[in-house]
Amino acid sequence: MIRALFSAKTLLVAALLLAALILAPQVLPRFYIYLMALVFVTGLLATSLNMVLGFGGMYQFHHAVFYGFGAYALTLLLTKAGMPPVFAYLLAPCCSAALGLLLGLITVRLTKLYFGMLQISLGSLVWALAYRWYSFTGGDDGIHGIPLPDVVYSSTGAYYFSLAVCSVSLLVMYLIVNSPFGRIFQGIRDNPERCRAVGVDVHRHQLAGQAIAAFFAGVAGTLFVTVEGSVFPELMFWTLSLELIIMCLLGGWFVFLGPMLGAAIIVVLRTFVGIYTEYWTLVLGVVLMLLIFFLPEGVLGFALRKAGPAQADPAKE
């Protein structure tokens, strides 16, 4: 299975990268370890968005809802339900997937813009509920000091945990993108009408894609809780969703690892710009404008095109 998808060279590079990431906490200061863990979380989230956006062609405008929902689900399962952490970590992404299915049932019948706008609106309802339901979700303060299992409580523990979960999730998503389902999904992106004409039930596939993407967004949500130890309504605010789209665009959304790169750039940029100025959104807005005008295929997409189509093969798809 793995052999069919990756060349020896790609495997070698991946192994080296993984080894470097595993050794990183021995060398780097704690702040950087925290920052890298944040990159993993955000990158996983952006990649899960790109599964439906870049590979499925769905206007997934409010992906952060599934992220925040997963984070809240984990938190509430741990604090209110007192569930054993193992089960809570497994169940929380499933809650996100269920929400994805529910919202999908309402939105998936609509096309492109309608779909996206309705998703933003319905997602905002979820946000508003979390924002106001003080007794259950902590309202706009959120919930802090979440009792996490000891293994992941330290920052290195959280780092290794998110590295492991992120790697496995990326692998699984890569398999899905390259599976028959992924192929059909790309077909729907390119030409839904033609897909129907060859016998594909487009809505069912979009619904399934939505649920899968929501699941992985939920996984990213649980990782966020692990890294930060808290949840708050901003996690499912709609501007975060649009920021995620920027990450996909920045990295290149026809390349699997594009969103990961985009997320890394944005997270690092935000951290360092934040030191100098409080006007981070202004910077982000200008970056986005420049991107739209000058680099619409993203950094990785641009690099791969420059490198020529022959070398683009292993990472592409």
């Binding site: 299975m1 398999l175 599976s179 028959p180 389902f181 192929r183 059909i184 897909c195 594909v200 596939h205």
Partner: peptide
């Protein structure tokens, strides 16, 4: 291949590489 996969009803196969 999209058409062939659709006919065979393999479209919800999530983990096998479609190259095979």
């Amino acid at each position: 291949q999209v058409a062939v996969l659709a006919r065979r009803g393999k479209t919800f196969n999530l983990l096998r590489p479609s190259r095979t």
